[in-house]
Design a protein around this nucleic acid. Structure first.
Lengths: 343, 343
DNA sequence: TTCTCTACTGTGAACGCTCACAGAAGCATG
DNA sequence: CATGCTTCTGTGAGCGTTCACAGTAGAGAA
């Protein structure tokens, strides 16, 4: 009367079982599992067959214990969370990174550093080596978590150029300045001259760069800068609405507005509507992001598409390279103007 | 010439180092780490001090290797991903679960089962015991992944009542039927009689329940059911717009509409606007979810708030209980009517 | 005293894997 | 025939924990 599987869950097969089944040693199975160098074709085949028969799956804990690698990476959000969780781009980024990592069979751990307590716990967790690297969403300046991780030598790739961290940390970003330039050039080409802007948060490089692009093109077009035409926002819908009201108040002759995010542009459209301005006849509106919000409004937004799928892929690529020993790298990806009905 | 830390990363302290530092044995340190039963106060104190001095953090791989637990759980999304990634509720749920788990010092692994390939990999990963349990977002019927996990005996908690899975799987859901009832009662109390509905996908229990609630209240109020007043949608904005157009076409005298999601309600508002109907004067509109979309539109949506924070907390609580040996449980949480300007 | 019980502590053996090393076999070269 | 090289394979050790077990010490009971 054997007791191989009496009632409970069966003990999963180990590398030992596979070795016995295939008639080889543990070492050979391990070699097949990790690349298959220095293994004869016959052994290779026998092992693979045994793996299939037994349904063997490697025990990652045992592997990690000896290799020191965890073969998992963290996706860390330290931004003010509301901003991001309201932002559809975040979803796209998170999904892209998860899928890119899945292709390498690496699980993604989601880490949200909201409270001080969470910050401490996460820092300990990461520096203790429980992840091999970190995908970081935190572009604002002076982030203490990012700084600690950098000092601890944890491989790090930020989304968007980080402020205040040295060149030791990699980042992947869309070309914010160039995207802003494209949009403002587009508005200029439509004959608009009183072009306003609602900026993003100016403690983020994205916010700064988009503003810079706006200013550059105006200067190049020989259009005089006018501070009354610039209002500051924080990417939220509400701040877009407030910004537009401010602009209409200070510069009623505004004939176009470049808004640093689609979400804010939603607010801008609402404010313009309330003020009785027609879009695009009276005021042309250009957004940024090409988020789902862009097509959810009437008129559909002309906007700048950020290549989120490429951004997430590049973040993963750069991070894995850095874990593999490469030097930190900066990747800047081009944006694309998407013309719809608001200009 | 010692070589304790020559250049590279220092080897992290082990339980052995802590034991030596505290002048006790590994076993005692381990006992302190896991609850502290049968440890003298003096040893307890010495160990804690040593842990603080050395900066020791337990090696979870070594622990998992012997305990068989992974002390991590998976957050699995098998729904058509677009629907969810467009849905702000998903974010709230994901964030809530992550934070609830963080409170237990349990990391959350994000798993997206989109393609067939991903499905296979994830199933293998989970059934191999790399997570202790799964938070499942997949209410649609006949989900093969969920079915396999259930068969393998993996602790499972679904968000929303799953169709087709036996009573072996726990779930946490808002009271969809009662929420729908509240909204339709509200519309009836406003004197509306020609009340339409744009449903959610009818292969999900949420979609079915909301429709049932709508029908119940109409019957109770003595209002004759009229199939021309029911259009089906899939929670997406576009399907809301299409649904409203259909309703206006088939029942031009409609004076109210209950929409099974805020996102669809956005589309409904757009369609009504296009058709020249005033909201709420001509047609009152009630949504469902209380997502950010509800306040982003004009007029702001009257809607049904789902208690997402409680839902995520309960999902985690039920899952951990089930991992601890408890029987599967079903939790249904009450919703709340939020009145704004669209009714 | 002697025994039993409780509270506490240390020790070896695992957990499943990889890695370094030793060695075997085959083949070319001296 | 010895020597070296390459390709392949098996073996033992050890990664950092927990767990079962064997102790030890002290208190109370017989």
């Amino acid at each position: 009367m054997t007791m191989t599987n009496a009632g409970g869950r069966r003990r999963p097969p180990t590398i030992h079982d596979v070795a016995r089944e295939a008639g080889v040693s543990r070492g050979t199975v391990s070699r097949v599992l990790n690349g298959g160098h220095y293994v004869s074709p016959a052994a290779q085949e026998a092992v693979n067959a045994a793996i299939r028969r037994t349904g063997y799956v490697v025990n990652r804990h045992a592997r990690s214990l000896i290799t020191g690698r965890s073969d998992s990476i963290g996706f860390l959000l330290t931004e003010p969370q509301e901003r991001f969780f309201e932002d559809p781009n975040f979803n796209v980024l998170l999904r892209g990174c998860t899928q890119a990592l899945a292709g390498h069979d690496i699980p993604l751990l989601l880490m949200l550093a909201g409270t001080e307590d969470e910050r401490r716990r996460i820092t300990r967790y990461i520096t203790a080596g429980h992840v091999d690297g970190v995908l970081l969403v935190s572009s604002h300046s002076g982030d203490p978590v990012a700084e600690q991780l950098r000092e601890a030598g944890v491989p790090l790739v930020a989304c968007g150029k980080p402020i205040g961290l040295g060149s030791k940390v990699s980042y992947v970003a869309a070309d914010d300045r160039d995207g802003a330039r494209d949009m403002v050039k587009h508005l200029v080409s439509l004959g608009r001259r009183r072009i306003g802007m609602v900026t993003g948060p100016l403690d983020t490089p994205g916010g700064v760069e988009r503003l810079a692009g706006y200013r550059e093109v105006l200067a190049e077009a020989g259009i005089e800068a006018d501070d009354r035409l610039v209002a500051s926002g924080d990417y939220s819908r509400a701040s877009g609405e407030a910004g537009a009201e401010q602009l209409l108040d200070r510069a009623p002759d505004m004939d176009a507005v470049f808004v640093a995010s689609d979400l804010m542009a939603q607010g801008v459209l609402a404010a313009l509507h309330k003020a009785g301005r027609r879009v695009p006849e009276d005021v042309a509106v250009g957004g940024f992001d090409d988020s789902p919000a862009a097509t959810a409004v009437t008129p559909a937004l002309t906007t700048i598409r950020q290549p989120w799928d490429r951004i997430s892929n590049e973040m993963v690529r750069v991070l894995l390279a850095q874990i593999g020993g490469d030097d930190p790298a900066a990747v800047i990806l081009p944006t694309e103007l998407v013309r719809r009905d608001s200009t």
